[in-house]
Design a protein around this nucleic acid. Structure first.
Lengths: 244, 244
DNA sequence: GCAAAAGTGTTCTCGTTACACCCATGT
DNA sequence: ACATGGGTGTAACGAGAACACTTTTGC
């Protein structure tokens, strides 16, 4: 139940002091692809505890705001992206972290979110962070609080969802090539995929991608120009695209 | 970050009144199999709001307790099971629900958990609930608060995890037959599976189940006695066991 | 004997894999 | 010319689906 009635008896008019108060925050694991590598957005802490350490961006949930709303707001604030751009990023709830001593100052329960976007710009230190930067995933040292565990959970979740959902398109711009889409899988999974087979698999899954009608082509550097696609309407992959 | 430093400036010694206080609760979607049907544990509310309506069991997270700890404690209290029995139930975090008005009385953020167990006994109204009962999943009317959404999310999550994890064994007693295991899939998915193919699939997945050495056999009613198995060490299914 | 559930075998089909090969572009 | 990446073709393999059939129990 929600706000259960303690010990089965209390006055019908609720007393707000009868429950233990918590601070509720959101933490963001924001991923993007830069130069074919998976990057994470991290900020450097300006205050104790963990002063000078890297941490995930995040912030308090406001009194009249849902956790998801707070996550989207912080996403815009701390990445320095326009509200419009941040509104397009894929955002999904990861898990909630609530160990009593995860923050030495006070009791904080944090709802972690994962955000994905294509080639996001360098963050401008918009929020309270002393420094904000994209770091290649795996190169970051130990993070503040329990953020190492959160980040590892986020990466695991993304890798798993690539298998059985269309999540990969969230890493791509509105129009993309199959090579870019394959690059998402390769960067997140850290493996190489067979190009012809990947192509067939994607095209044979109804609704995964949708060919852009006017068949203009484009080059990623050199090589044959590639056909362009847009994300399809599907959300799940049946059958899944399993990791090698 | 965790407990971020608001607007980048405040005294180093933290003021606990500087953050908006929330109540944090856990809600439990507890599933079991009774007579080959999926059942959910529901309680009838004794107080307003939603007095007399069915709701998910749950309760407050205590000041020095993690959400997972609170979930396990409430599981034991509200199901009337012994602490030892409740400790064996599979418990995993589902998601966190935080819409500002989900509880009309106050601001409550609830971390929802899913619990699974084999043929659990009839609940004894151990906690604060006016009534607690197993209801066949799908037969319950509208629940209090946002519990319909939580329950639907829990069912969807379980159905999905059956595909690519060994979760089904959590619905079975320590030793079980392949017929019982198949019954889990059929009850949760609401479909019939081909017995021979199911058997081959399960036995060919290393670590899913483990034959009980002394080959005693047992009957589920009438029919040929079935071989017994125990849950294996594996946690993931590669390749997955996809829904028809 | 009959119903019911366990267990074995077989065939067909479809998806995946591992290649070889051609195409179009930049340097 | 050659390197690079896009795109097509194909044969072999393996997992899953569908279904027939035998075995062992209770009634």
């Amino acid at each position: 139940m929600t706000a259960p009635d303690q010990q089965g008896s209390h006055p019908p008019d609720y007393d707000p002091r009868a429950f233990p108060p918590f601070a509720v925050t959101v933490d963001l694991a924001v991923f993007t692809l830069r130069a074919d590598r998976l990057h994470v957005l991290l900020i450097r802490r300006g205050q104790t505890p963990y002063q000078g350490d890297w941490a995930l961006p995040g912030g308090f949930v406001r009194p009249r705001e849902s956790a998801g709303g707070a996550a989207r707001r912080e996403l815009a604030e701390e990445t320095g992206l326009s509200e419009a751009t941040a509104a397009h990023l894929h955002l999904e709830q990861l898990a909630t972290y609530s160990e009593p001593d995860r923050d030495p100052r006070m009791r904080v329960v944090s709802v972690a979110y994962t955000a994905l976007g294509p080639g996001l710009p360098e963050p401008r230190g918009g929020g309270d962070a002393a420094d904000a930067r994209w770091l290649p995933y795996g190169t970051q040292g130990p993070l503040a609080f329990d953020h190492d565990a959160i980040l590892a959970d986020a990466h695991r979740r993304i890798g798993a969802k690539l298998e059985y959902t269309c999540l990969a398109t969230a890493f791509c711009p509105p129009v993309f090539t199959l090579g870019e889409l394959r690059g998402v899988y390769e960067a997140v999974w850290g493996v190489e995929l067979d190009r012809p087979n990947f192509r067939r698999k994607v095209l044979s899954t109804p609704g995964f991608v949708q060919a852009v009608d006017g068949p203009p082509k484009l080059t990623g550097g050199r090589g044959k120009p590639a056909a362009l696609y847009r994300a399809g309407g599907a959300t799940a992959l049946h059958p899944p695209l399993l990791r090698p």
